[in-house]
Structures are given as structure tokens and as C-alpha cells.
């Protein structure tokens, strides 16, 4: 029986999570680097509590964006031609492969954000007003970043761009994510409505999801 789109996507997601569990790339390499970056920033700027509280959220999101993209891009760009051939020759729908890869990236990014988030609260003495909104914001940013990184990795995997171009592809597209994420937290701190920023994060995720699914087949077939 032919597998469904969803079952193919879940197969790819399970594969990626299992590979991560074995290699520990995110947990034992990228995550510690992100944590070190958050530790070093106060040394570079100031250890004054008020300053740290003021810049903490922004620093958290910058670290999440930079290291998060690395997480999302790492697998696809590291895979060999033989590995990509093996996947292609299963006859899986490239859109299902994209969806599964993005799903696995989302899960890894969510863990990454959560651990660094707790660290930021501790190190920067972050104001926890509106904390009930934090999970939703973290989830939406993780979705957007996972989709963005998976699309960028797909472009690089075609062989027509090099991995060095990933920052150029990702940087302009991550700006709206960064603005919406930081402004959401700023809105919570000031007690303002953050609905606009939440909607913006949701729309970015939706646009990236549609773009990713629609471009998956042409991108695979370009490679």
C-alpha cells in the first residue's frame, strides 16, 4: 500500500530525530555554544542588573536566530549525494520530505529555545509578566525558524549555491521573525496587547510553510 503524505513526513521526522539522538549535534554542540554566547554577553556589555534585564530578551532572540538556523540547516547540507539519492529513490513526495524535515527541526528548535530561555531568565533576571504567552511565542518562532532553515537548506542542497550563502538567504527573511518575537516580549513587559505580533508570527509561519511545500519538488529536481 502506498504510504500517505503524512506517514512519509512522519517517517522523515522520526529519522531526523533518531539521527540527532545518536549524534547529539544539537544537544552537545550547538546548545552549549548558544549558552556560552548568553554567558559572554553580560561580560561584554555590563553586569548591571537593569541593563541586563533591558537587553536580555533581545539577546536571547538573536542567539536563537543565529544558532537556530544552524540547527535547521545542518542536516540537509551535510547529507551526501548518495544519501539524497537513497531518499529520492524511495519515490517519496519531496513535499512530504520537506514537511518531515521541518517537523524534526521544529522539535529540536523548541528544545533549544526552551533550555536557552530558562538560562536567559536566570542570567538576565527577565521580567516574567505575561509568562503564559511565552510557550505560544516560542512555538511560533520555532515553526518559522524551522521552515526558514529547511527552505535555505533545500536551496543549498541543489548544488547551485554554497552553504556560505545560507546567512545571505536567511538573514533578510529572519528579520520579521526577530522583530515580531522581540516586540511580543516587549509588549508583555509593558502590559500591551501582543495580538498583532502573534498574528505576524503565525502569518510568517504560514507563508513559509506554503513556500516550502510548493518549492520542495522543484528544489529536489534541480539538484
Amino acid at each position: 500500500m502506498s504510504p500517505t503524505f503524512l506517514s512519509q513526513a512522519m517517517t522523515v521526522a522520526r529519522r531526523d530525530v533518531l539521527r540527532e539522538r545518536r549524534s547529539g549535534e544539537v544537544l552537545w554542540v550547538t546548545l552549549p555554544f548558544g549558552a556560552v554566547a548568553l554567558l559572554l554577553i553580560p561580560i561584554a556589555i555590563s553586569t548591571d542588573t537593569l541593563t541586563l534585564r533591558r537587553v536580555g530578551v533581545g539577546m536571547f532572540w538573536v542567539v536563537v536566530m543565529l544558532f537556530g538556523v544552524l540547527i535547521a540547516v545542518r542536516r540537509t547540507t551535510a547529507d551526501s549525494t548518495a544519501q539524497r539519492d537513497m531518499v529520492a529513490l524511495t519515490g517519496m513526495d519531496p513535499a512530504a520530505v520537506f514537511t518531515g524535515t521541518a517537523l524534526a527541526n521544529f522539535l529540536l528548535l523548541l528544545v533549544f529555545e526552551t533550555v536557552l530561555g530558562v538560562l536567559t531568565v536566570v542570567l538576565y533576571d527577565i521580567d516574567l509578566s505575561g509568562a503564559q504567552w511565552f510557550p505560544l511565542i516560542l512555538v511560533l518562532v520555532a515553526v518559522g525558524l524551522a521552515l526558514l532553515g529547511t527552505i535555505a537548506a533545500g536551496i543549498v542542497a541543489t548544488g547551485r549555491s554554497t552553504a556560505a550563502l545560507v546567512p545571505l538567504i536567511v538573514a533578510p527573511m529572519s528579520v520579521p521573525l526577530l522583530i515580531a518575537a522581540t516586540q511580543s516580549f516587549e509588549g508583555l513587559r509593558l502590559g500591551k496587547s501582543i495580538l498583532t505580533w502573534i498574528l505576524m508570527l503565525a502569518v510568517i509561519a504560514l507563508v513559509l510553510a506554503v513556500a516550502g511545500v510548493l518549492s520542495a519538488r522543484p528544489l529536489q529536481e534541480t539538484g
Binding site: M1, P3, R14, R19, R22, S80, Q83, D85, T90, G91
Partner: peptide, 26 residues
């Protein structure tokens, strides 16, 4: 298609690699 270089995922066991192919193809 069997090319020059095997395309197995290094972190997975042979059975897991094969199971991935099986699941992908139903």
C-alpha cells in the same frame, strides 16, 4: 539504483536504515 558509494545514514543501524526505506515506501 546502487551507485559507487552506499547512502546509509551513519548514525543509524543497518536495520534502522532499512526500516526507514521500508516505511518511506509502504
Amino acid at each position: 539504483y546502487i551507485g559507487h558509494t552506499p547512502g546509509w545514514y551513519p548514525e543509524l543501524t543497518l536495520a534502522e536504515n532499512m526500516a526507514f526505506v521500508a516505511a518511506a515506501m509502504g
